[in-house]
Amino acid sequence: MQINDTLKPTEVALLYQSHHAWLSSWLRSRVGCHEHAADLAQDTFVRVLRARQASPLKEPRAYLSAIARGLMIDQFRRRALERAYQESLAHLPEAEVPSEEHRLVILDTLERLDRALQALKPRVRQAFLLAQIDGVSIAQIAQQLDVSRATIERDLAKALGVCYRLRYAER
């Protein structure tokens, strides 16, 4: 992978001067909150700095709004996941409720896992959850799902490949 395919800081600075105000108002019209929109606009430019993108940009506003939209969707997903987590806690005995510090680590990991699961076919997802979360052996999963061991091994490798990309390739 080349390292010099991100936008240069001077280009990002120019992008910021020309389009920051526009992006903030674009975001404000969507999230309905001034401060939230300002935060998202900042995050968008942080992401632009890090993103691999051959310069120059032909459609800077389309590019910025695509990144901002992605951030909004991520936030939406994160909130949905936090809600699911909160509701799941209600079913746990007090002693098994993780500490606040541990909670954030768990949620970050679950968020990536959740996104990975969405990208997987149902059987792959099922096999991966049985192996990774429930701790069931490959031989046992193969019997239960009525497919070969080799198929389950392939499923698990595929699922881990998606998890790996989410863990190391982004951000």
């Binding site: 699911a84 079913h91 098994e96 699961l117 979360i133 701790g135 881990l160």
Partner: peptide, 22 residues
């Protein structure tokens, strides 16, 4: 280390959360 991270998840809580989210 990716696998360690996943293995460190609390089982019942994670299953429930992921099932609900999916």
């Amino acid at each position: 280390s990716l696998s360690d991270e996943l293995a460190g998840l609390p089982k019942a809580l994670s299953r429930r959360t992921l099932d609900a989210s999916q």
